[in-house]
Amino acid sequence: MIELSDTFIFDTMLKSSSLLGLSAGMLGVVISYQRRSIEINALAAGSFVGILVFYLLAGVGIYLSSYFSGEIDKYVFSFTGSIFGALFMIILLNILYKTDRLHMHIIQSLMTAVMLGVGITLITYIRQTGGALDSGIEIYLFGETTSLNSEEFDFLRIIAVAAVVLLLLYFRRLKIVIFNKDIARTTHFHVSFYYTLINIMVICLVAFSIKIMGVFLTVAIFLIPAVTARLWSNRLFIIMILAGVFGAVSGTLGTIVSGTLGNMTLGIAITLILAVFFLASLIISPYKGLAGKLIKYMR
C-alpha cells in the first residue's frame, strides 16, 4: 500500500473518488427527497448507451471536430457520449412520465433494463466488427480503479466542487422546492430553474460516476449515503453534510481497499463500505437505530 500511494494513478483515483463521493452524497439527499432515486439507474444505463454510440461513430469515422482528433479523442468522445446519453434519457423519461396509467418507478426500472439491453446488443456488435475500439468497454459495467486520466480528473474536480458550492449556495430555496412545490410556485421564484440546475448536476455526476462505479452500482453512491445520514438526524442541512462526509470517507476507503486487494473493482469496494456504514448506523444510531429503540424502551 505504501508503494501504491506514491503513484500518480493511485493519487488521482483517491482524490477523484473522494470528491465524487462528497458531491454525489450531497446531491443524493436532494434526489431522494424528490423520489427520483431510481432514476439514477436509468440515467446510468442511458449514458452507457451514449458512450457505445459515440464509440461506433468514431469507428465509422465521424469526429466532433478537427481540434479533438488524436490522443485526446477517445476520452472526449466517451465523456460527451455519456453526457448526451444521460440527457436523452432524462428527456425520454420526462415524456413517458406524462402518462397516468403507470407508476413512475415502473417506467424507470423498465427503461433501465431496456437501455442495458440496447447497450449489450451494441457491445456484441462492436466485438464482432473488431477493431481497436472494442477494448475498454467492459470497464463501464463494474468500474475500474484506473479508469480516469488527468484531463478527466480536471473535469471532475471542477464539476464536483461546483456542485457542492451550488448546493450550499441555493440551500434554502432548494429546501422549499424539494418539500413543497406549491409554496415555491406561489412565492414567485423560478421553480423550473432549480429543477434544471438539479438535472444538470445529476447528468454531469452520473457521467463521471459511471466510469468509477460502473453502470449497475452508480445508484449506490447517490442513495446509500443519503439513507444512512437520515438514520442520524431529521434536519436537512445536517443530513446533507453527513451524507457528503459518508460519501467522501467511503470513496477514500474504497480506493485504498480496492488498490490493496487487487481483485476487487472500485465500485464494488465503495458499495460494500457504504453498506457497512449503513448496517453500523442501523445498529448504533441513537435517533432511529436499534440502540435508540433500546434506550427508549429502557426508559
Partner: peptide, 18 residues
C-alpha cells in the same frame, strides 16, 4: 426504520449483487 421500500431495496439488492 419506516423509510420507503424503494430506497432500502436498492441498498439491500446492490449489496447482495456485490
Amino acid at each position: 426504520t419506516h423509510f420507503r421500500a424503494k430506497g432500502i431495496s436498492i441498498i439491500v439488492s446492490s449489496t447482495l449483487l456485490c
